[in-house]
């Protein structure tokens, strides 16, 4: 079976961040390039943070999804240049994060609105959260704690 680039990219929509399973690697902006040559597929991905432990799982998942679809030769390359930034996250990805309960990054805003009640009356609890890419906030109105995907 032969696939074109678009078909491969659509297949890769199934690959999500194992720690934030609502967002695909394309939405997250870590899928950098797909090259297709006959039945040989090369996928470039880039880490969010250098020590992100999800990268090896994501690498395996990419191979798995493509192998299952009938692509036999898959190479996944880890590239670090140019360095990932949250600017590469798609608008769709940000919406999905918010719906999941994680405040998405917004470099244009100083306030981090609560993803649950929408209040802008929130405060930082800790610079570091449950994963390298998040910090911890709490909402002063609905009182819920929430994760914020840091601007990076």
């Amino acid at each position: 079976m032969e696939f074109n680039k678009l078909e491969i990219e659509n297949l890769l929509e199934q690959v999500t961040d194992p720690e934030i399973p609502v967002i695909s690697i394309r939405d997250l902006g870590i899928l950098r390039d797909v090259k297709v040559d006959n039945n040989q597929v090369e996928v470039d991905i880039t880490p969010t943070y250098t020590g992100c432990p999800a990268m090896s799982v994501i690498k395996q998942d990419i191979s798995q999804v493509l192998n299952d679809a009938g692509v036999e030769n898959v190479a996944v390359n880890l590239v670090i240049k140019p360095a990932w930034t949250t600017d590469w996250m798609t608008e769709d990805g940000k919406r999905k994060l918010r719906e999941y309960g994680i405040a998405p990054p917004d470099p244009s805003s100083k306030v981090v609105p609560c993803p649950r009640c929408g209040s802008e009356h929130t405060e930082l609890v800790s610079l570091f959260g449950s994963t390298a890419c998040k910090s911890l906030y709490k909402c002063l109105d609905c009182k819920e704690p929430f994760d914020h995907f840091k601007c990076h």
């Binding site: 943070y49 250098t50 020590g51 992100c52 432990p53 800790s126 610079l127 570091f128 449950s130 390298a132």
Partner: peptide, 14 residues
């Protein structure tokens, strides 16, 4: 505790 282990992880990545 989480902050220090997060920094640890970043440094391991570097």
């Amino acid at each position: 505790d989480i902050a220090m282990t997060n920094i640890s992880l970043d440094l391991l990545g570097q």
